[in-house]
Write a protein that binds this DNA or RNA. Structure first.
Lengths: 113, 113
DNA sequence: GCAGAGTGCTATAAAATGTCAAGCGATTAG
DNA sequence: CTAATCGCTTGACATTTTATAGCACTCTGC
């Protein structure tokens, strides 16, 4: 799977290109942003993220866990209780979110519409 | 259309949430990154971006133009020659790309695979 | 004890989105 | 003359996301 597309270079691994590919997946950034102010459970996260349906959220969250960005902790299986938190790598994305935040506030203002 | 989903707040416009929604669309960040080192024509951009098909690229580029992030200049219609460049707003996204760049280089290293 | 709300998810089908391959009119390169 | 390039568009297909429902269970209030 990897990526069928070369970034600028050819057969070398480009971390930036990869990073963009991860972050551009739908909901990824929203998930990270929501988790920046503390760990959350599944439904809680869904609500904070604002409208992602459980199927997609589950899939996205799994991927982020496997990438080492999120950490899933199961506290109890049968009164279901889980929590998702950012790992060190995930925390580091705060910089990215903040950059987006600044840009949004400065250039997005009102949609005029 | 705006967004059907509330960010954290309810009926207020949240620039950050909007910004994330724009940037998370497929290819958007790649397009911006490619354009950071100068304006490009359509096919040139497609190649730099690394494999986006013309249909999607056209659509994405249109949206970015209408958002004021890109600027399209038609030099000649019939030997077709166009160029896309970042506006001030687009240039400002360099910060975001750089943040992603730093993160990718630091945390993405090799995919082990 | 029993309804009703809440937990973390999964299943199914449909809708939205992205991709592939081909091609248009025209000019330029060999 | 032939092939390639340019900026796209079209239409069929594949993948992704969505809505809606529900499971198995616990906890709270009555």
């Amino acid at each position: 799977m990897a990526d069928p597309h070369a970034p600028h270079d050819d057969n070398s691994f480009c971390p930036v290109y990869e990073a963009i590919n991860i972050l551009q997946e739908k909901w990824t950034l929203h998930i990270i942003r929501s988790l920046l102010d503390g760990p959350k459970g599944f439904n809680e996260l869904a609500r904070a993220v604002g409208g992602c349906n459980p199927a997609t959220l589950a899939q996205r969250v799994d991927k982020l866990v496997s990438l080492g960005i999120l950490e899933k902790t199961v506290h109890s299986t049968m009164p279901p209780r889980t929590s998702y938190a950012l790992t060190e790598s995930g925390q580091a994305l705060q910089e990215v979110v903040e950059a987006i935040d600044r840009w949004g506030k400065h250039f997005l203002k009102e949609p005029v519409a």
